[in-house]
Amino acid sequence: MRLVIADDSVLLREGLVRLLEEEGHQVVAAVGDADTLLDAVAEHTPDAAVVDVRMPPTHTDEGLRAALRVRADHPAVAVLVLSQYVERRYAAELLSGSSGGVGYLLKDRVSEVGEFLDALERVRAGGAAFDPEVVRRLLARSAHVDPLAALTPRERDVLERMAQGLTNTSIAERLHVSVSAVEKHVNAIFDKLGIAHTTGYSRRVLAVLRYLGS
């Protein structure tokens, strides 16, 4: 199959390329960040993409969000997430938002090369391949999830001041940071709380309501 590999670790990325090519697959692109992954998928339209969760610039969830973009924009491209981490919110979206062609494996729990290759083949064929530990963690947190748990301490500080009715400029003055830094935190808050642009609704107000409700 034709593959795109996305992992910020050069050693792991090159190791995957060598392994997959030795198995007869064609790696059309091997990249180290989410934006380049999206470009590579758009350019090559591979059969599948193998994606890490944490990649530049923030090393939090860029890879997994890019995987969801790939599934949305290129539904014929299968996606296998291969990571050390379970990013719960986006992993749940990946698990529930697709009828097949997706997988999520934990690097430390892949004990055999054949296991990884079998999972990749299964995902490419339209099936699913989820590590039981990934599913267990999602189910364990699904009932009582703190909506603010994903926020950093600084993002919580910004959200608290948003709830006080302060503008970004006032928040920047209170926290002794730049206005642009506050804007980045606000956008991160919207993203982590899953508040998308919706006509007729203020994202700022919705974020404050989430904060008060928590």
Rank of each mutant, 00 (worst) to 15 (best):
D73V: 09
G32E: 06
K107T: 12
D131Q: 07
S96R: 15
V4P: 00
R156E: 10
G213C: 09
R65F: 11
A34Y: 06
G213N: 14
A172P: 03
H59Y: 14
A207I: 00
F190M: 10
D33R: 03
A196K: 12
R122L: 14
V158Q: 01
Q84A: 13
L37S: 03
L151Q: 02
V79D: 02
N187L: 12
Y90H: 15
V113M: 13
D8N: 07
A207T: 00
L68G: 01
L80Y: 04
S202M: 04
A163E: 02
I5L: 13
V10D: 07
L148A: 06
E155R: 10
D39C: 10
L20S: 05
L212C: 01
E23I: 06
E87N: 10
G97F: 10
Q164A: 13
G200I: 02
H144I: 05
R54S: 12
G165R: 08
D33N: 08
F130M: 07
V53N: 06
V182C: 02
L12P: 07
V135I: 14
E23H: 12
S142R: 14
E43Y: 11
V41P: 00
L120R: 04
R141M: 12
S98E: 15
L209R: 12
M1N: 05
R13N: 00
R122S: 15
G103C: 10
V17E: 08
G101L: 05
E14L: 13
R71S: 02
D108G: 13
F190D: 05
V53M: 07
H25L: 08
D131C: 08
P132A: 06
T152Q: 03
A149Y: 09
R204Y: 09
E22H: 11
G213V: 08
R137H: 13
V81M: 13
A128D: 15
R124W: 07
S142N: 07
R88Y: 14
M162L: 14
